[in-house]
């Protein structure tokens, strides 16, 4: 997208200012300007495996699917018999190249998370599968996303998240909503690269507050911010 002067427009994360003050290197990703790294990528990658890292993923496409028939439509799409609230599922056959995750939040509400460039494609596919009273709303701009990853991720979360995040109560594939650092969050666990991965979703207006609280909690566990390069490096190594 470009304005009348031909300037290419970038979409900025609500945490852009916070990243800048941390000395982040940015890189474009599907129209967004996101953090490539804060220090040497290899250092950040090693930290992810050793202690953990906190990564801004506000660019991911987010679609809210609501309505009494919403989960029924998603069940058909995912090819599963049950889609219980509190669970996260991978959706493979969505027609795009990147992974898509579906988090069932309540009996009539689900959040679909996809790559930034596939939001329209995935949104159309979901829309087509819905019958009766159900709607899709794009909430990418509304919600920021932060990954808390690594061996000490849960310990970091326990300092701000008030509900039970213990691995036994909150295993891979679980999601829950509740209070964290005084605000409302959605937490999903989607382990990858052999390490625990927690995906925190918060409204954009509280994003900086939550980010600051996460960094403060992370400091006590040796867990700091990492950029997308380090996370992708883990994926490649895998």
């Amino acid at each position: 997208m470009a304005d009348s002067a031909g300037t290419r427009l970038v979409r900025r994360s609500p945490l852009a200012h916070a990243h800048r003050s941390l000395g982040a290197q940015f890189r474009p990703i599907y129209g967004w300007e996101m953090v490539a790294s804060y220090r040497a990528v290899e250092q950040e990658r090693a930290a992810l495996l050793d202690t953990g890292g906190i990564c801004d993923v506000s660019d991911t496409g987010k679609l809210m699917v609501q309505g009494t028939e919403a989960l029924a439509g998603l069940r058909t799409l995912l090819g599963v018999e049950t889609l219980s609230p509190g669970s996260v599922h991978a959706w493979a056959e969505h027609g795009g190249d990147s992974p898509v995750t579906v988090a069932a939040l309540t009996p009539d509400e689900a959040l679909v998370i996809c790559a930034p460039h596939e939001e329209a494609l995935v949104g159309d596919a979901v829309e087509k599968a819905l019958n009766g009273c159900a709607h899709v709303t794009g909430v990418t701009s509304t919600r920021a996303g932060v990954l808390v990853m690594g061996p000490r991720a849960q310990r970091v979360l326990s300092r701000i998240v008030e509900f039970d995040t213990d691995p036994r109560a909150f295993p891979d594939g679980a999601c829950a909503q509740g209070r964290a650092a005084g605000t409302h969050v959605l937490l999903m666990r989607t382990d990858a690269f052999g390490i625990p991965v927690y995906d925190l979703c918060v409204t954009r207006d509280h994003a900086e507050h939550l980010w600051d609280a996460l960094l403060a909690a992370g400091r006590n566990e040796g867990v700091g911010p990492v950029g997308l390069d380090a996370v992708e490096a883990l994926g490649k190594a895998e």
Partner: peptide, 12 residues
């Protein structure tokens, strides 16, 4: 009733 409300305040 078929009415869904989505809060888009922070995204706008």
């Amino acid at each position: 009733v078929c009415v869904h409300v989505t809060n888009v305040t922070p995204g706008t």
